[in-house]
Simulated scan of single mutants.
Amino acid sequence: MTRDPNEPRRPEPREPRKANRRGAARLAAVQALYQMDIAGTPLHEILAQFESHWMGREVEGEQYLPAESAFFRDIVNGVVAGQRKLDPMVDEALAASWPLKRVEAILRSVMRAGAYELDKRGDIPARVVVSEYVDVANAFVDRTETGMVNAVLDQLARRLRASEFDAAS
């Protein structure tokens, strides 16, 4: 079938920007970590489940954005592999009277993922990591709890990436 040259061309759907695909990967990673924490779903099963049934698909009437799969895997694998290091870091950033184990499971997942990126993903600016995970938290909890996520991740960012903050001052 040939196209009539006088007919206006329909725009092709654009691939979501990389940042949007990464945001979707962060959201999916937090959901996957939450499911692992609550249901004890094994790592290989959760990765397969999210990549084949959730990311970029419609589930129960909700459209999930396409996500950068490699980035999703990096976050989930990184949090699982580094949890013994990440949890004490997050715990230290929380108030002494509020240890990580008392924090809601979804917020634990958000803070662990954010801590992982701050610790291991130096290619992503710390302020971007903090902002992105505050946005992810906003999808699940109210403003006071997102404030806690912001405070914890900001404290970790300033400790783990002090040079980024020194240069900006």
Rank of each mutant, 00 (worst) to 15 (best):
M36S: 02
F50G: 07
A29F: 05
D154T: 11
D74N: 10
E92G: 08
Y64K: 12
T144K: 13
D74W: 06
A167F: 11
W54Q: 13
P11C: 00
A96T: 07
M1T: 10
L153R: 00
M89N: 09
S163I: 10
G61L: 09
F50C: 09
E7G: 01
S163Y: 13
A126W: 08
P8R: 02
E45Y: 13
Y64N: 14
R158H: 08
W98E: 14
M111W: 02
R159W: 00
T144P: 00
A70I: 11
A115Q: 00
A139G: 06
M36N: 03
P99E: 11
F71Y: 15
L100A: 11
N20H: 06
V152N: 03
R102V: 02
N77G: 00
A25Y: 05
S163C: 00
H44R: 14
E60P: 01
D135E: 13
N6D: 10
M36W: 01
F71R: 09
Y64F: 15
A162I: 07
V152P: 03
E145R: 15
S109Y: 11
A167W: 13
P42N: 10
V76S: 03
N138M: 09
D91A: 10
N138C: 02
V110G: 04
L153I: 01
D142G: 01
L27Q: 08
L27A: 09
Q31L: 08
V79H: 10
W54T: 13
E117N: 14
L94V: 01
E12G: 04
A81V: 02
I46R: 04
E15W: 02
D87E: 15
A39D: 11
R14G: 05
Q31C: 07
W54C: 07
E104M: 14
A115F: 00
F50E: 01
L94A: 08
R112V: 04
V130R: 04
A48N: 13
N77L: 11
P66M: 10
G122R: 15
A157C: 02
